[in-house]
Amino acid sequence: MENKKLAVSVDDLTVAYNYKPVLWDIDLAIPEGVLMAIVGPNGAGKSTLIKSILGIINPIAGSISIYGKPYDEQRKLVAYVPQKGSVDWDFPTTALDVVKMGTYGSLGWIKRPRQKEKKAALEALEKVGMLAFKDRQISQLSGGQQQRIFLARALVQNASIYFMDEPFQGVDATTEIAIINILKELRKSGKTVIVVHHDLQTVPEYFDWVTFLNVKKIATGPVKDIFNDDNLTKTYGINYKVSVQQ
């Protein structure tokens, strides 16, 4: 791993809400090409961590770089899948329209999406198995389908690093498998994928890299080395046991 490039590096990051620290002096180096889970109890600051890396939340201290440069210069290398619950699904728009939004960043101000962008959006829809639903109003999709639309929107961005906030929350089993297969494919093609994750049981099966977080960083590294009862206990409190099959 030593010779690999760093996709994301976080230095001394501190974030506070109302002057109460939620992330405290986080140092994190994420190598290129990993599929990483961020795990930790509720309120550990998992979403806050990726939101501050993405510049949605302003930290009170620390710096972040993407491939060695500040985030602002590297924006086009990054794609984001927010929590499904963060938007109003009754918004008057179709699945295809939402996926097209992924192209807006590279278009910049004022320019409209054209045939090229539409084609890219359709391809992404096909990749997540939602092509048949392209003209569906988004409120008429199931939770799993909505999550796939969000994933397709990020795929359209054609980024190098993907950040996802709880992509498996409230989705059906089929969608969960479909999503994790796409993520694994992304990793195979050399992309870096960072996922806020809840279900500890599936960590060894889905991911190859993991970060334990509870306000402070507890540990980060390959799943096979550090995903053990010791780190889980440190993260979740006293005597946390999970049967880890390796």
Partner: peptide
């Protein structure tokens, strides 16, 4: 539709 996402773009 999605203010946070707009910011990341």
């Amino acid at each position: 539709f999605d203010a946070d996402y707009t910011k990341t773009l």
